[in-house]
């Protein structure tokens, strides 16, 4: 029982938190800018590398170094939007998808030029699990940080979207950009705000992922499929649906390797990502609008 909690459920939640943070940004940008941003995973990865560099320069803790990285990533994202996305605002959205696809490769190869392809640890040394409930539940402190950071960021974004003027305007544009324009909402400002939120949450997801495992130039790409699956599961344009979707998919991926029948893992752990894909395919067939009635384009 406790083995199940310690080795499958808690790691599933950890992974789910990271997916949730990533999927949140994808769902927001998909809802507001109306395209699937393939470069989102690379922003995650880049943010983790920024953090790595700042840590090297200052010796700060990764979660502290993540803050200036978020600012850098947000600025970069605004620049990228201006250069590569804004020219296609009035074009068919598939042009934006292609542009984001190109950006994906550009960001990744730029990281390769500067950092090489070798993966490296963000935190050094082995972390001994801390014991809770007389040793029944145990997980390393870093998992606690991951949970807490995710909760803090979620609360902040929830506050932004439901309590602030710009956040409500973001939901309004997500709902109907045409009506937003007629209402006098400055759509370009809303789009900029969206990129800032998306970049910051992506950097958080990237840093947490690097803390949990390691820094890897392909980590963003590997996250792309589960993140899209989470966003679709929750319903596009439903940021908190995406969060739940991320948690469900993270847990489902880990639990798929649990020996439910006999002693062998139910699914070869190498196929974990397959779970995300399978869930996505089921949703696309059964209910493309997701669990929370998001948009279908």
């Amino acid at each position: 029982m406790w083995e199940f909690v310690n080795f499958y459920f808690i790691p599933g939640l950890v992974l789910g938190c990271i997916y949730a943070l990533g999927a949140l940004g994808i769902s927001l940008t998909f809802g507001i800018l109306r395209f699937a941003n393939f470069a989102h995973g690379e922003i995650m990865m880049l943010g983790a590398y920024f953090t790595f560099t700042i840590m090297g320069l200052t010796g700060w803790h990764p979660l502290v170094a993540a803050l200036p990285s978020m600012a850098l990533a947000a600025l970069l994202m605004l620049y990228l939007d201006r250069q590569f996305f804004r020219p296609f605002r009035d074009s068919p959205t598939i042009m934006l998808v292609i542009a984001s696809f190109g950006l994906m490769l550009m960001i990744r190869s730029a990281v390769w030029v500067f950092y090489g392809t070798q993966s490296k640890p963000l935190l050094r040394g082995f972390q001994r699990p801390t014991q809770y409930l007389d040793g029944a539940i145990q997980f390393p402190d870093k998992h606690l940080w991951i949970f807490l950071t995710t909760i803090v960021i979620m609360l902040a974004i929830w506050y932004l979207l439901t309590r602030t003027k710009i956040g409500k305007a973001m939901r309004a544009v997500s709902d109907s950009p045409e009506l937003a324009k007629l209402t006098g909402i400055p759509v370009e400002t809303v789009i900029r705000a969206t990129w800032i939120v998306a970049a910051c949450s992506a950097v958080a997801a990237g840093v947490l992922l690097a803390i949990d495992s390691q820094l890897d130039s392909l980590m963003g790409f590997k996250m792309l499929l589960p993140m899209f699956a989470s966003a679709i599961l929750g319903g596009i344009g439903r940021p908190f649906g995406a969060v739940l979707g991320g948690l469900v998919i993270g847990v489902a991926e880990e639990l798929s390797a649990y020996p439910w029948i006999g002693v062998e893992p139910l699914l070869n752990p190498a196929y974990k990502t397959g779970m995300a894909f399978a869930i996505m395919v089921v949703m696309l067939i059964w209910r493309p609008s997701g669990l929370f009635k998001g948009r279908v384009f």
């Binding site: 409500k168 939901r171 309004a172 997500s174 709902d175 045409e178 009506l179 344009g237």
Partner: peptide, 10 residues
């Protein structure tokens, strides 16, 4: 406008 004149999710 005639249609789509409210933000349905707000």
């Amino acid at each position: 406008p005639q249609t789509g004149n409210v933000f349905v999710n707000l």
